[in-house]
């Protein structure tokens, strides 16, 4: 397989990661699509630097989350970018409103956390181990545990407030 094929397989196997990260770090469809494009572009650009020390998924999380942070600075400062044609992750002919509503609730819950906590909890929800979270985030495993305990407390309060919406 050439680089292009490997890249396409990697992106398509991890498209959920890209979509969810882009959804959590942005507000609105246009901005989300913009970030998804930027993540795909940066993954392509740095694809040769993937050293296989960690799994491809772990590496992809790191790249996507880092790009999302850089994107935050630009979000309010630019007009829409050059669109990539191809309808990536488009849910044609499907009612997406329930899905979008659920994402919106997640976004609201996580918006009350700072960017470090937001990143950690998102990886936790993705069922990544504390070791993997430690590698992606770059803090010790024990620190991940400490921060997770604090995040759970914060989220518990948030969930209590919003529990009615989940029924």
């Amino acid at each position: 397989m050439d680089k292009k094929e490997v890249f396409l397989t990697a992106i398509n196997n991890n498209k959920g990661i890209i979509y969810k990260i882009a959804s959590i770090y942005t507000n609105g469809t246009e901005d989300r699509n913009d970030l998804m494009q930027e993540i795909i572009y940066q993954v392509w650009k740095s694809f040769d630097t993937f050293n296989q020390k960690s799994g491809l998924g772990t590496w992809m999380y790191r790249v996507a989350m880092n790009v999302a942070i850089y994107h935050l600075n630009r979000t309010k400062r630019r007009i829409p970018t050059v669109p990539i044609e191809g309808q990536f992750l488009d849910f044609e002919d499907e009612d997406n409103s329930a899905f979008e509503e659920r994402l919106q609730i997640f976004r609201q819950l996580l918006d009350n956390l700072n960017l470090l906590e937001k990143g950690i909890v998102m990886l936790y929800l993705e069922e990544r181990s504390y070791e993997e979270i430690s590698i992606i985030v770059g803090i010790s495993v024990s620190n991940v545990g400490t921060k997770m305990a604090r995040i759970k407390e914060k989220l518990k309060k948030q969930i209590t407030k919003k529990s009615e919406r989940w029924k």
């Binding site: 890249f7 396409l8 398509n12 309808q87 899905f99 993705e126 518990k156 969930i159």
Partner: peptide, 29 residues
């Protein structure tokens, strides 16, 4: 919070239905 994981996992199932990245996109990039 652990119940959130199930809800989050449901999102994954929905996302699997989304279209794959088109090979032409790589050419554009």
């Amino acid at each position: 919070i652990d119940d959130l994981k199930n809800s989050w996992e449901d999102l994954n199932n929905q996302l699997k239905k989304g279209k794959d990245l088109n090979p032409e996109v790589v050419d554009q990039l």
